[in-house]
Design a binder for these strands. Structure first.
Length: 173
DNA sequence: ACGATGATGAAC
DNA sequence: TTCATCATCGTA
């Protein structure tokens, strides 16, 4: 079973999308060849008040993509060397996104984007096959009790409330 | 524990 | 135009 995830999938609550993305596949086409990996770890960045989200600073040149339509990528350079892969969720004008933090066999969002050769060219692009980067449901279902929730990584700066929220989701084992 | 490394946003 | 900051990772 190969079902391409559409904008409808991402037009839902960010935390729901983040948990639902576990077990889904990222497919990347490089020079005509498809590479696919299963998502095992995600984080939710939800709304204008989430101090851990870049969008908490309001709409800027960098963050305007998070205010855009669901199902587009938000990609940016972190620490000068690693690209982060996010998918925008929720309605237009509501800033939210899910960070793809890990896939099967790879841990760490920086390694993931390096492996899949993802860079800021994909920023603001739709997650569709035409753009050589999209997401698929291949029938893998992660049961609720196999999903672990923890605080997000590297967001201590977000203050005692937002840095402690359990917006990180990963597959156990 | 720390440096590499560059875009970003805010202050000046 | 300068400055501090950062959703990381490899090496130590």
């Amino acid at each position: 079973m190969r079902k391409i995830l559409t904008q409808k999938f991402f037009d839902r609550d960010t935390k729901v999308v983040a948990t639902d993305l576990l077990g889904k596949f990222i497919v990347r086409k490089i020079r005509g060849k498809e590479v696919s990996v299963m998502i095992t770890e995600t984080e939710a960045y939800d709304g204008p008040k989430d101090l851990a989200s870049h969008a908490s600073k309001g709409m800027t040149k960098r963050t305007e993509v998070m205010f855009g339509h669901p199902g587009i990528f938000y990609i940016y350079l972190c620490y000068g060397m690693y690209y982060m892969l996010n998918v925008v969720t929720g309605k237009k004008d509501y800033p939210a996104a899910v960070l793809i933090r890990g896939v099967e066999g790879k841990n760490g969002p920086g390694k993931l984007t390096k492996f899949l050769k993802i860079d800021n060219k994909f920023n603001k692009k739709l997650a569709i096959p035409k753009n050589n980067l999209w997401l698929e449901d291949r029938g893998v279902k992660i049961p609720e009790n196999n999903i672990k929730k923890t605080p997000r990584i590297g967001v201590d700066y977000a203050g005692p409330i937002w840095s402690k929220k359990k917006f990180r989701f990963l597959v156990k084992g």
